[in-house]
Write a protein that binds this DNA or RNA. Structure first.
Lengths: 342, 342
DNA sequence: CAGGAAATTGGGAGCGCTCTCAAATCTCAA
DNA sequence: TTGAGATTTGAGAGCGCTCCCAATTTCCTG
């Protein structure tokens, strides 16, 4: 039962290797009767074709890699990544691909992982999370001309496929929501400015203020790192500037920030309103349910896989650039209901 | 640069295919001068050996699979799994293995994944998270006689390799800590009773009570599912029985439970003390820093990988059964300091 | 019932590597 | 200088599959 080969099955079914291969790969042009006889033998023996041999002969591994670069240190702190991974894993399974996970923690990791990832014959394609703007990893992957889809817009977009949400307008919507509720001293807890997502959400914040003719007050902007602790300390830096609302570029930071505001004796949302970004389950479970931008994280992962499969099957050109929609989810933390009642 | 083979490198270096193979695999018995010449060509051309061909010829894929069964629905809610995965990924990288991730969400997933996982030639070994006691997945994997290490003690332990912490004594330590602080109506928010980890921590709770001659009050025991929401609702069920302390079988549940206690107007730890389990970063960030059992989650992952590699290299027998230590970490939630001061 | 087209089947040549074995080369003591 | 033994190298036979091509069989149509 252990080391059966195509040849063995062929002998047992009284046909040739080629015919068994045809049956296995669902090629047409095999007589129904023969097809059934072969399947019967396969089932009875519990035969599974050898993946390596298949890959070698067909130049197709049915494996895709998910690469999370060094800068994504928050893999295990921010629920965003598990959710994304979940969506990706599910889609891989759906499409009969196997998912390999490459967590790049250090520079040495990167050197070790790189050959494994870019080498032909082990991976059909790569999904890589966009990271810091200076990071060479993505450029190196692009150069290796392996089918590649970047999760989150990279800094250089010419000729590369990526998938993202429209962070600028999503952030603008979030901040506008606060403006519409009458808040005027709106703080921003941004993501890192050396990431496109950090910059984009900052730009959205600026646009919203500009549309209301409000000048940006630098004391109302604090850069953080997408973590809860980062949100907490950023909020402490913002407090002296007396914001009456804060847009945080992730739910986790919003939760940290709310905690900091509470610890400073402020009431949410009466004294200070909050809007987050992501709409992960924690958003509803926060001490004050969070108004936030919902992005379809799991579907995002699914779409990334499907885009990558498209690239694998139909070539790198033209670059696929997919932008997914977001929506504002209003809950208690922005004080929308208070105002409605008042 | 793209489709170089061993043969090409051999020709360019003026040696045979075999010699290049020897150089690549660091076999001895290659003249220093030749070795360097070959490396030089490899470096210059950017050649990487084809993984599939290597696997086919050597019957070794250098890939291990991490299988998370259906019952582990909390992959994306409980930070435990990302931490574990992180440890595993890091160790894989260290040992030059590639990690493939198999998230089993549905029965169909399981059917799709199973052949990919048990088939020879794609995976050198498997790490599988222990799940519900009735789950057939592990039994099927054991039968397929692929090198296997189970994360968390499975229900049937004969002949299988696994790695776990001593949940019984860890839980006992946690509950004893509360008893030593003078608490007597100690509630338990347990994990699911259809998991070994759920049962073990329950047993530890019983042992601790027994050692103080306290009879267990069924109204003080609530089964939950390791989620924060589960902890919250379990706490609500416990409240009528007026516990003065609660041991929750995970930090996440402890946090949910504390929130429920607060929402019911109780003060932590004055009115009710809490002890959790895991000591993940969220434990320190809780509204009241959590006394908890620290288990070495990331090292756990590392150890699992190392144990699996041992099994891969030295055979399935004898079964490796590794138990790792835990320690009690005292913070504010158990009220130890109050008592110290009083 | 012939004859050609279509459907079905088998054989062979790889895919790119590892590994055994024998040949070639080198080393050094006598 | 020679030859036994050690070291280094190359040739060849797979690993188990896919896929092309040619051979065989089946199916129609007139």
């Amino acid at each position: 039962m252990l080391n059966l080969t195509l040849e063995d099955i062929a002998r047992m079914a009284g046909v040739s290797r080629s015919t068994v291969s045809r049956v296995l790969n669902e090629h047409p042009n095999v007589r129904q009767e023969v097809r059934e006889r072969v399947w019967e033998v396969i089932r009875r023996t519990g035969y599974h074709p050898n993946a390596a041999a298949r890959t070698l002969a067909s130049q197709r591994s049915w494996v895709i890699g998910l690469v999370l670069p060094r800068s994504v240190s928050s893999f295990f702190t921010d629920p965003y990544f598990p959710h994304l991974t979940q969506g990706i894993a599910q889609a891989c399974n759906q499409h009969n691909y196997t998912l390999s996970l490459f967590l790049v923690a250090t520079k040495e990791d990167e050197e070790k992982i790189f050959p494994r990832v870019s080498r032909k014959g082990s991976l059909d394609g790569i999904l890589v999370q966009s990271g810091e703007i200076g990071d060479q990893l993505i450029d190196r992957l692009v150069e290796s001309s392996v089918p590649l889809v970047i999760i989150g817009r990279p800094f250089h977009t010419e000729g590369v496929s990526y998938i993202d949400v429209d962070n600028v307008s999503a952030a603008e919507t979030a901040v506008r929501h606060l403006l519409e509720l009458g808040r005027r001293r709106i703080g921003l807890i941004s993501g890192p400015f050396n990431t496109t997502v950090g910059r984009d959400r900052y730009d959205g914040y600026l646009h919203a203020l500009a549309s209301y003719g409000i000048d940006v007050d630098r004391a109302l902007v604090a850069e953080a790192d997408f973590t809860e602790v980062g949100g907490y300390t950023a909020m402490q830096r913002l407090l002296p500037a007396k914001p009456d609302a804060v847009f945080a570029a992730s739910d986790l930071m919003a939760i940290g920030a709310m905690r900091a505001a509470r610890d400073a004796g402020l009431r949410v949302p009466e004294d200070i309103a909050f809007v987050g970004f992501d709409d992960l389950p924690i958003a509803t479970m926060a001490s004050c349910p969070l108004t936030t931008i919902r992005q379809p994280v799991a579907e995002f992962g699914v779409k990334a896989v499907e885009t990558l499969i498209d690239v694998i099957e139909n070539g790198l050109e033209p670059p696929r650039q997919v932008i997914m929609g977001t929506e504002l989810v209003v809950r208690a933390s922005s004080g929308a209901e208070q105002r409605g009642i008042a």
